[in-house]
Design a protein around this nucleic acid. Structure first.
Lengths: 340, 340
DNA sequence: GTGAAAGCGCTAACAT
DNA sequence: ATGTTAGCGCTTTCAC
């Protein structure tokens, strides 16, 4: 079947191209009868408009882009649904764009903006070096959602939790329960995004409780295993266990990592929480179904997503607003931690 | 910053637009010095070409589209990486397109093909009614990867496992181990895709072992909870447990569902595999780290993905080939099943 | 090696 | 209410 264009349809219907355009775009100023007739032909011949041409011509498009690095993060995935829904309520469509980890977010964003005539863009996760400068040339509104940013970012709107603080709360909680030797499974050695922030919180809480920081209790995720996975958690936990170091609790900076740690502990013939207390981070659905159910710091997905959309809408409407929205995470006490 | 076009760059450099086009597209017939000069200006002014215009003009584009319904399937996600890699080796880029569950795959595919001038397209998962007819109008090569298709599909290339057969193997294995009362947690009542196929295999194995099919041992996933999730598995398993029915094994048609079942069993104060043997399906990474590790039927991701790409390449090259490639799944015996 | 110009398929003035 | 037409920004002949 040949590739039909709007011209072909116009010819078949004996009308002008603009009339066809009006029919397929629900333009009000068109005779319902003609519209009906055209739509029937469109249907019959399976005419599908070329979006490239449409995007090229369009001066505006009620679409918002969402940019993510990698699709392996359970936590991000669960937020897309909310974005789509919230954006829909505001009359916007949602364009998801996955980018490779070696690509530059500013460039990919700019390409997408030009291609789709986006009204705004949401960046999810990872780390963006100098958003105020690198993203300025986008010249459309954008919001950073759960992106690790430097404290001195002033012009970029962002929505997130305070990773350092929430991490502190976890370790503080463990200390108050009497734990003195607390291991951590943190990001890779060179992780200056959430991994670094969460490690900072761990250190500060320890210091506040007068507990000396012990490098032997810090397990960095392995470079040769994907980040934040059960496998990495398992491997690091196993090393920690075999190191002979003494500890009563382990804080894994992601839930999946904690899941892997569970396995290493069980294989070592130890029990949670009797021998080791375990805490995770993020609050993915899975944690509720682990045995014992995992105590974790849940990110308020719903709030984060809704606030991101709201902030973006305000930026689009030119409303001056709070640039930096920080939500509290919700600590969920379950069955993986005990008092000493 | 204004939106630069190729014309602006041409003007700045004092050359024609075609020369700029040649520079940014690595065209061989251009003076290296001019090219260098232009590229420097491009860099300096952050010129980013408009892909919509490019796609519109392009007559061909070495790109392959991958279409998926929903992004919540762990198993699919792990295949994207392989697709991207394999496609890259063949000189193709990879365009991921997520579609809503209420959208028609043929239409979305056609839109994408027109917009991006795709050379081929891969459909992942779900169910496609009459691919031979509905997808014919794409008039570019396509491959169905792990899509549930009717047996009488002749013209559409497809790569998958035999869900019915592998399901049979699982139940057969359980029977041979002495299990006579085997529960199943299957898809929703109206699931005629993998859910239906896997349930068929269960029934056939039972019959072959002279075990009467007992509808009370069949738990359908709940409509009001997302499919194939731990939560759904937990809920259904709990009902099964509370029903008072007697059984010694449960076969969950997806690993995550089995994960939820673990929790329900543990909450009931029962042990796996002593009280209940559990088997899953798909072989996602998580299963290895469950306690006890889950016996499951692993889909050969690597093989499926590579074969999909290979088949697509052959279709593109016009090579006549096998239309239907079926791989064996790999049964992984672990610690969640016992002999009766 | 480089530039001028046509045109990809569509939308949005502008006429009628 | 509908048709005509001018581009959107790019690539690609075709001259030079």
């Amino acid at each position: 079947m040949a590739n039909l264009t709007i011209k072909d349809i116009a010819k078949i219907c004996g009308v002008g191209t603009s009339t066809v355009s009006r029919a397929i775009n629900d333009d009000p100023g068109i005779n319902p009868a003609t519209k009906e007739r055209i739509l029937r032909v469109v249907e019959e011949f399976h005419y599908v408009p070329n979006n490239a041409a449409r995007n090229l011509k369009l001066t505006e498009n009620n679409a918002i882009g969402v940019l993510v690095k990698g699709l392996n993060n359970q936590f991000f995935l669960s937020m897309f649904r909310i974005f789509e829904e919230e954006l829909g309520k505001q009359g916007y469509t949602f364009v998801l764009k996955e980018m490779a980890s070696d690509q530059d977010e500013a460039t990919v964003a700019e390409e997408l903006v030009k291609e789709k005539r986006l009204k705004g863009i949401i960046f999810m996760g990872g780390k963006i070096e100098n958003p105020d400068v690198t993203l300025k040339r986008l010249d459309i509104p954008y919001v950073l959602c759960t992106v690790a940013v430097n404290a001195n970012v002033r012009e970029s709107a962002s929505v997130s939790i305070d990773d350092e603080k929430e991490s502190y709360r976890i370790v503080d909680y463990l200390c108050k329960l009497g734990h003195k030797r607390i291991a951590i499974i943190t990001g890779r050695k060179n992780d200056y995004a959430v991994g670094g922030l969460r490690l900072d919180g761990y250190k500060r809480a320890l210091a506040d409780h007068g507990i000396a920081y012990d490098a032997n209790l810090v397990g960095y995720m392995k470079d040769d295993i994907p980040d934040f996975t059960a496998k990495n958690g398992y491997t690091v936990m196993k090393e920690l266990l075999e190191s002979g170091e003494d500890f009563t609790a382990v804080y894994a900076i992601s839930d999946l990592t904690a899941f892997g740690a569970y396995k290493a502990i069980s294989e070592a013939g130890k029990k949670i929480p009797d021998d080791y207390s375990v805490v995770g981070f993020d609050g993915i659905d899975l944690t509720e179904y682990m045995t014992p159910s995992l105590t974790t710091m849940a990110q308020p997905k719903e709030d984060l997503a809704k606030a991101t959309v709201q902030l973006l809408m305000q930026e689009i409407d030119g409303v001056e607003t709070e640039k930096k929205v920080v939500y509290d995470a919700a600590f969920i006490e379950r069955d993986s931690v005990r008092k000493i």
